[in-house]
């Protein structure tokens, strides 16, 4: 197998283990919503984004905004593995008088680019940054990850419309399309389909992938980089809770915490 992909698979497994340990110790929820993002975030931080973890404010860096801030456990694990902040921060997660919360907050740990938590904010900010980079003739790319539920927000569509209108080809939106939102299946709560047609109608280049297949993830970002005069959305078909059988494709792991027995059972599957 391709060395790059093998390396990403190993990293993703480590991130999933770190994520579960973090969640178990902190009694954190949103485990399923975090697990579905892991492969894309791994690819972003270890192959795609132009970053320098020694210089978090490097002015040529690419920007990643986790607009679905609730799914942050895999993101935190990736930032630790990348060397942005020490493991200790995660060991203390959610303890009294600490700073890193269940939604990413700028300034609480290095590498976090933007504070999120309320849905429907990240893509507007990403659009503004992409426009700012374009005005300054800079090559930084901006990647914003959205949840599928977040696409119910009107502000998300305002952002989609303006980025399409402005032809922001340095902006990539990734939808973690795991088909489950907070209180039901996406198709039943607020159907997004025909999803790709909606983005196309708003002027976006659309790439649809299996969000757990590294070859497809890398290919999608390459296609986004090649697209000119329009932003790209990667609609990533994912599985909520990916990697832990009893969490996969369930609503309850949007909320539940891990007890010792379930933690051990989950970790065994990631060996």
């Amino acid at each position: 197998m391709d060395k790059t992909i093998l390396n990403l698979q190993n990293k993703a497994r480590d991130i999933r283990k770190s994520l579960l340990t973090m969640a178990y110790k902190a009694r954190a929820g949103h485990i399923g919503s975090s697990l579905s993002t892991v492969d894309i975030i791994t690819a972003l931080y270890f192959e795609i984004l132009n970053l320098n973890s020694k210089k978090p404010n490097w002015d040529k860096r690419d920007i990643f905004i986790l607009s679905k801030g609730h799914g942050c456990l895999g993101y935190y694990a990736a930032l630790v593995l990348k060397g942005y902040f020490p493991q200790k921060v995660l060991a203390d997660l959610f303890k009294d008088n600490t700073m890193v919360s269940a939604h990413p907050t700028l300034g609480t740990a290095k590498g976090i680019e933007y504070s999120t938590g309320s849905l429907g904010h990240g893509l507007s900010v990403g659009g503004g940054m992409a426009y700012g980079f374009r005005c300054a003739k800079k090559n930084n790319r901006v990647v914003v990850m959205l949840s599928d539920g977040e696409c119910d927000e009107g502000s998300t569509w305002e952002a989609i419309m303006s980025a399409g209108h402005l032809g922001l080809d340095n902006l990539v939106a990734v939808v973690d399309y795991n088909k489950n939102q907070a209180f039901g299946r996406t198709a039943q709560v607020m159907d997004l389909e025909p999803f790709e047609d909606k983005w196309r109608a708003f002027g976006w280049n659309v790439v649809i992938i299996d969000g757990h297949n590294f070859a497809e993830i890398l290919g999608a970002f390459a296609a986004a980089a090649a697209a000119k005069n329009q932003p790209t959305v990667i609609i990533a078909n994912t599985i909520k809770g990916k990697g832990v059988d009893f969490m996969e494709d369930t609503i309850e792991w949007h909320y539940l915490n891990l007890d010792e027995e379930k933690y051990n059972r989950a970790m065994k599957q990631l060996k």
Partner: peptide, 15 residues
Amino acid sequence: QNMMGFAVGLALTGK
């Protein structure tokens, strides 16, 4: 809503 978020994105790039 988009105007405010977009403004923040621009501000983050130094405007």
